[in-house]
Nucleic acid binder design. Structure first.
Lengths: 344, 344
DNA sequence: AGGTTTGCTGATAACGTTCACAAGAGAGAA
DNA sequence: TTCTCTCTTGTGAACGTTATCAGCAAACCT
């Protein structure tokens, strides 16, 4: 029931300042060719009435002119990985005078579609998406209509758009090889939902590392579909309680790694642990957790850069940018040296 | 140089379907009173042309009608505390068909003003702000113009708006009292920037706890203005190397606490540590870190609820909601029991 | 002086949509 | 038949802004 105080329009300002509407428009937009004295009178009226330009009208009049807004859809904003990525995008956007609409898909295609269509209804100039599995028909439609789309972290199922990610398979393979090289053979795998592209890649990398040495992993140590930290913890705990437990564990992302930490740290039996994704304090746990680090800030910044160059009119063929990962050997996956000598 | 394919308008659809523009409008908006057969023809044309409603025009025509968009301004989206808060707000918004514009102020008043004015230029219906220190004249202006504003985590300097936060002073006081009760007297304080309201409150709570017992803290152990994790680590390290180092440390937020962990954990001398804010794996460190936990999800959800009820027209006097904190005693601030007996 | 340029201001017509009506076609009642 | 009533569809006028062009001084040139 609150009656909005009916925002004043340029007409009101014009009347108050005793000029024409057009003069007000010029002043508001800082266009040249208005006598300073007149401009001052208008500015005064603007301040007195608390005038603010109506963006809808402006945008309508100027035709498909950019809205200076992009939409960012991540998996889960509360996950530090995506939070860091989003923050990097936000910084890039702000530098260019853009603002960011944010959304989380929670790995639900339905929710992804809802959020993206809500973004498009607000005429975003571009979309930066961490796509979930499934068909992206609606995204493709948007693309055809001129909305620029860039994918980050994962590719969008068969869509030809710029994509920024890391070589998940190779990175996982290298990490598991690291364990194998240290003599581990019974290595458990803690996998998040298999319908997530990155997870499938990492799983494949896990298998490839074994294959490289002509080995096969023990199937009973492979646990898939761990959708949250608690279920990862449960799975890790179960593995630990096996008659013949694994000597090492590879976890598919930060969530499953932390689940493993929940289950294993502070327990008696030590088990080597290597996780995909860096996370805060991984280096401060006892033993510190060896991880495959990727840089969410770099991913976000790079994807944002691509998106803005598309928005600026770049029509070159879609690019796929692979960023580097870094295996950070800490304690948890290492052969513990006999005594003292910390390795750098 | 990409020529936008000139999005089709209702006129185009009308022509393609052989009906009038108004009929298209009705179909698009799902209004009743269109013969199913006609509607089907229109729908077909819509799909064929890839028509999408122009929100700018719609919004313009419907007058101050809500844009179903809110702006959320946090301190730093990459900080897990604010990420969790933002995610909670996003969920609440989505339930109501709203989308969220996000921004980080980085504790800069200039940046806060820029972001908020960018939000307002896009006619957000409401703002959920974690305000930085300083004058919020422009925010007040927005308020007067009918934009609803709610503050989270901190109050906005002398503005009468709904505010959701915790009793920072009391919580800090209780935490420090906890240390004092265990016999600590030389307690160091690691404080983030004093111009942040919550930090000042926590500092005050630190002092109050001493005062309660007729004590005064040792001034040389108080380090203020630690603006990031590295400087907090440096300060904690310096305190540890004093000739007569503190026996305990109280850290003003998650960043300074983690800085302290960087400096102290894995070192020889043990120092009790209590930090404000819960953070991931605090319970898995050795010893686990005692913290004052506040619930960012609850803060975000509550603030969002208030904001949406304001948007819905609630004009009751501004409320101040205080949420509870919880002191989570873990190892780092406790008197270590002689043996075995973990306290619950 | 006569003509031309320059600088400032104002009138008018869009932009794409929705609101408030009006118009037309049938159906049912008198 | 004629009138009214319902159901569907169409017409015109906004919404607040900006692009375009026209007007009208004053100042400048020859």
């Amino acid at each position: 029931m609150t009656r909005r105080p009916a925002r004043p329009t340029m007409r009101d300002v014009a009347q108050a300042a005793g000029v024409s509407l057009m003069t007000v428009s010029r002043v508001v937009n800082g266009q040249p060719g208005v006598q300073p004295e007149t401009a001052a009178r208008v500015e005064l009226a603007i301040r007195r009435l608390g005038y603010q330009r109506n963006n809808a009208a402006r945008q309508l009049r100027r035709g498909g002119e950019p809205t200076q807004t992009i939409g960012v859809l991540v998996d889960d904003l509360a996950n530090p990985f995506f939070a860091a990525l989003a923050r990097a995008v936000e910084d890039a956007a702000r530098e260019r005078g853009y603002v960011v609409l944010i959304g989380s898909s929670n790995d639900s295609l339905r929710r992804e579609r809802e959020v993206i269509s809500a973004f498009c209804a607000r005429q975003v100039d571009g979309l930066l998406v961490v796509p979930v599995a499934g068909s992206h028909r609606f995204l493709r439609d948007q693309l055809a209509l001129g909305t620029k789309v860039v994918c980050a972290d994962r590719p969008a199922d068969g869509m030809a758009v710029d994509t920024v990610m890391v070589d998940n398979r190779q990175a996982a393979r290298q990490a598991v090889r690291h364990l194998l090289d240290q003599g581990h053979r019974r290595i458990g795998y803690l996998g998040d939902r298999e319908d997530i592209w990155t997870i499938r890649q990492r799983h494949a990398g896990f298998l490839a590392a074994f294959e490289d040495l002509g080995l096969v992993p023990e199937p009973s140590l492979i646990r898939l579909g761990l959708r949250d930290r608690a279920s990862a913890a449960a799975a890790a705990g179960a593995l630990g309680r096996l008659r013949d437990p694994p000597t090492a564990l590879f976890a598919s992302n930060n969530v499953t790694t932390m689940g493993a930490v929940d289950a294993l740290y502070g327990q008696a039996g030590e088990m080597a642990l290597v996780g995909f994704d860096e996370f805060a304090l991984a280096d401060k746990l006892v033993p510190p957790v060896t991880v495959v680090a990727q840089d969410p800030v770099a991913i976000g910044a790079t994807a944002a850069q691509l998106l803005f160059s598309r928005i600026a009119g770049d029509t070159s063929p879609p690019r796929e940018v692979m960023l580097l990962t870094r295996l950070v050997p800490r304690g948890s996956g290492e052969v513990v040296p006999a005594a003292g000598g910390a390795d750098h």
